[in-house]
Design a protein around this nucleic acid. Structure first.
Lengths: 230, 230
DNA sequence: ACGAGTATTCTTGTATACAATTTATAATAA
DNA sequence: TTATTATAAATTGTATACAAGAATACTCGT
């Protein structure tokens, strides 16, 4: 019944989902025995999953004390947006140079689905389509390693990006930016594609800073593990 | 006697060192029981260390078959250098803008030690000082996340960078590039700093051919696990 | 009543035992 | 001899047992 060895992957995904969607609060400790009971497995695979999450930075393991959901401060988040902007900009630049014919139509299709979601005004739908759109951008770089890195970081920033689309105007302006980005890429304008994408992401970082108050309002556990990066 | 909990870290470092320095060939399988005997620990901490290495991409774990030293093909290596160049360029750009007074002297000091090693013609020394130099560059970004990412990727590329410096001329030209980079950063010239660093890292021109020949010359194990990125 | 020091409990880290699957080996048939 | 299948060996994944350290509760003293 159980897939060959996807169990750990499954555990990892489940926990990641819990964290990203806020079901497990920031700073909260992930108890190994409780998790092992919840998933009906022993501690061993739980530990493996936790280590994998720690490797991505989503949780933090303190020796002999446990693993905690990463509790990022505003500076760290800004830093990550800064890097995210660079990576996406790079994808756009490479995409503008390298995009192949069949990908052009795909990009336009994705833009259309974004438009539909934006016009419908459904923030959840737009969020999903937005993810897809950016995923396509990553692929356009034709650099799988870059695409993976970008996707990983994007995932890591999910919780903070999600807050933003709740701001009414953001969805509309986000889509407008998408249009300009697609134009630049299809037009082969590397510099514009890079710049537009950078700003597209950086804006999110800046907006996020404005929304810090919401983070403070969001459920926050006792700040046990305060950002201690190696 | 054993440090609090640095054992896994120690294992990780030891294995990483073995891999990076080629004592364990590419594609070779890392046998858990043999390693546990070698380090006189049980399989459990060995497995943890291997998982951590897998997270960095230095090794690859195939379910139910074992973990193998990552066997990167030329395309993957090129891709990674492309990203490395972007990150380093970003560090340089930010550094040129943000560098503080006390860091200026530190940067110059590092440049001097590089000069010494280059003039002595000692490739191993230069390799070490070169690492230090780039580490300082990363710090100049004043973006810890970026610095960490850059360092991690740099580490990942170590084996291939090491090959490059074996090319006699490379050490000399590398140092010349360092000089220009430092000038740009200290002069606050963001664009130059970025561009120079990018080119410094990027594999292009003759260095591409050099890398190819070096890779072909390197010892390579039975190609069991051929680059399968998730 | 409050604090320091100690004992208890709980949790993580490691070792070992077992199960499941893959790889290697051997034997048989074409 | 070679291919195929069955059997055996070896290796990974998981569970459990045990050890060491940390957190908590408790006792005793002031």
């Amino acid at each position: 019944m159980n897939k060959p060895q996807h169990r750990i992957q499954h555990l990892r995904d489940a926990l990641e989902d819990d964290i990203v969607n806020g079901r497990i609060a920031q700073g909260e400790r992930l108890d190994e025995v409780r998790l092992s009971q919840r998933f009906a497995v022993s501690r061993t695979p739980i530990r493996e999953a936790l280590r994998q999450l720690a490797a991505t930075g989503l949780v933090e393991t303190i020796p002999r004390r446990g693993t905690f959901v990463a509790n990022l401060g505003l500076p760290e988040i800004i830093e990550m947006f800064e890097v995210m902007a660079e990576l996406e900009g790079m994808c756009g630049r490479l995409g503008a140079r390298r995009i192949a014919a069949e990908q052009r139509t795909r990009l336009l299709e994705k833009l259309d689905t974004c438009r539909a979601a934006a016009e419908a005004g459904n923030s959840d739908d737009y969020y999903y389509e937005n993810e897809q759109f950016h995923g396509v951008i990553y692929e356009l770089s034709y650099n799988r390693f870059l695409a993976d890195q970008a996707q990983q970081l994007r995932n890591r920033l999910k919780p903070y990006r999600r807050l933003q689309l709740r701001v009414p105007q953001r969805m509309r302006s986000s889509f407008e930016e998408h249009k300009a980005i697609v134009d630049a890429i299809l037009g082969g304008n590397e510099q514009n594609a890079e710049l537009l994408l950078k700003n597209h992401v950086l804006i999110q970082g800046e907006r996020f800073a404005d929304l810090v108050s919401m983070i403070n309002a969001a459920p926050k556990h006792e700040t046990v593990a305060e950002s201690a990066t190696a």
